[in-house]
Nucleic acid binder design. Structure first.
Length: 321
DNA sequence: AATGCATGCAACCGCGTCGCT
DNA sequence: GAGCGACGCGGTTGCATGCAT
C-alpha cells in the first residue's frame, strides 16, 4: 500500500550517521544550500536517501540548532502551545528558536505528556472523579511493545482518540502544512517578541521569502486550533498566514472561521468590511492593516496570564461572537 | 555482576500537500 | 483536472544508556 519507502534501495545506508557522512552533508549544504534533497546525496557523495539527508540536516546538523536541555521557560511555552495547537510540532518549534519539531515532539512524549497526565490524574482525584486512564499514554510508553501496534491499528479507525480524551483537548481536523518561515522565529527563547525580519533559516525559505515579497495573492497556509469542551466546540480560531504576503508591509495573516464561510476573513477579502468582530481589537487588525505580530502579542498576553486555560476559553469564546 | 526493564533520542515510515506539467 | 515528484509533518520504531532488582 502506498509508495515504496524512499530508503529501500539496495546499497543505501540507514541507521545512525557517521561523522564522515555528517561532514559531507554539512559541507555540501554550506556550498550549495538546502533543497533538491533527492539529488543531494548523489551530488554530495552520500549513500543516503534524500529524505534521510534532509532529516539529519534539519534535526541535527543545522548551525542554528540549540543544544542542551529544554529550559523551564521553553518547557512552559511548549505546554501552553500544545494546549492551544495540539501536536503541531513544527509550529511549536517555529516559536522556539533553535529547537526542532522532532526534539519538541520527543520532549513532549518523554517528559511533558507524562507530566500532564500526572497533573490530570491529580485533578481528577481532587475532583473526586474516576476517569479511565488514557490507554498507552507515553508515561507507560512501550511497556508492552504490542501496544503501539495495537494503537497503530486503532488509528486506522479514526476517531478513537477523541472518544477517550476527557476535559479540554485540542481538536485537530485535518493536517495543514505550516512552515516555520511563516511564523517567524524570535531571536530569544522567551517567546516575547516577534521577529520582524521574518528571517528565514534556509535557502529554500529565503527563496520563499523573496516570493513572499512579490505580491499579496494566495490563500495561505492555515493553522487551526480550537478546543472542545465536553461536546460543545469552543472555537479557538485559526491563525492563518498568507504566505505570499510580506509580513512586514502587509497583513500577514487571515483569520478563518472553519465551516462558516460567511465569516471567512483575510486582508484580501473586502467582504469583511463593515462586520463587527469582538475579539481583542481584531477589527483593528483587519481594518487598520494590523500584523500577525500584533495578533501574536495579544495571543501571548493571554498565554501569559495566570489560569491560562480559563483565559484561553474566554479568548476562544470571544472569537465566536 | 548479571539481568531485565525504563527512558531518551535519533532515525525511519507513511501519508498529506504543494507545485509543476 | 489528473498525474507525478518533491517536500514536510506527525507517528512510530530501534537502540544505546541508565536504573532497579
Amino acid at each position: 500500500m502506498g509508495r515504496a519507502p524512499c530508503c529501500s534501495k539496495v546499497g543505501l545506508h540507514r541507521g545512525p550517521w557517521t561523522p564522515r557522512e555528517d561532514t559531507l552533508l554539512t559541507k555540501y549544504i554550506q556550498a550549495h544550500g538546502e533543497g533538491q534533497w533527492k539529488s543531494l546525496p548523489k551530488k554530495a557523495g552520500l549513500l543516503r536517501c534524500g529524505k534521510s539527508c534532509r532529516l539529519r540536516w534539519m534535526n541535527y546538523l543545522r548551525p542554528d540548532i540549540k543544544r542542551g536541555n529544554i529550559t523551564p521557560e521553553e518547557d512552559d511555552l511548549i505546554i501552553r502551545m500544545h494546549s492551544l495547537l495540539g501536536n503541531k510540532w513544527s509550529l511549536i518549534a517555529g516559536r522556539l528558536p533553535g529547537r526542532t519539531d522532532n526534539e519538541i515532539k520527543n520532549y513532549w512524549n518523554t517528559h511533558l505528556s507524562k507530566k500532564m497526565n500526572d497533573s490530570k490524574e491529580k485533578d481528577e482525584k481532587e475532583g473526586g472523579e474516576t476517569v479511565a486512564k488514557k490507554k498507552n499514554s507515553d508515561g507507560n510508553k512501550r511497556k508492552n511493545k504490542n501496544n503501539s501496534k495495537r494503537e497503530k491499528n486503532k488509528k486506522k479507525n479514526k476517531g478513537s482518540k477523541e472518544e477517550e480524551s476527557p476535559k479540554t483537548q485540542v481538536y485537530l481536523p485535518k493536517p495543514i502544512r505550516v512552515k516555520p518561515s511563516n511564523l517567524a522565529r524570535t531571536n530569544s527563547s522567551s517567546f516575547t517578541s516577534f521577529d520582524s525580519n521574518n528571517s528565514a533559516t534556509t535557502s529554500q525559505e529565503k527563496e520563499e521569502d523573496n516570493n513572499n515579497n512579490n505580491n499579496g495573492e494566495g490563500e495561505g497556509d492555515v493553522t487551526k486550533a480550537w478546543t472542545e469542551e465536553t461536546n460543545n466546540l469552543v472555537f479557538l480560531g485559526e491563525i492563518g498566514v498568507n504566505k505570499k504576503n510580506n509580513m512586514d508591509e502587509n497583513d500577514g495573516f487571515g483569520f478563518y472561521f472553519d465551516g462558516r464561510e460567511d465569516l471567512v476573513l483575510n486582508n484580501n477579502n473586502s467582504d469583511m468590511e463593515g462586520q463587527s468582530y469582538n475579539y481583542y481589537g481584531m477589527e483593528d487588525h483587519l481594518n487598520h492593516h494590523g500584523t500577525l505580530e500584533k495578533l501574536y502579542e495579544e495571543y501571548l498576553q493571554v498565554l501569559n496570564m495566570e489560569d491560562n486555560m480559563y483565559e484561553l476559553d474566554s479568548f476562544a469564546e470571544s472569537l465566536m461572537v
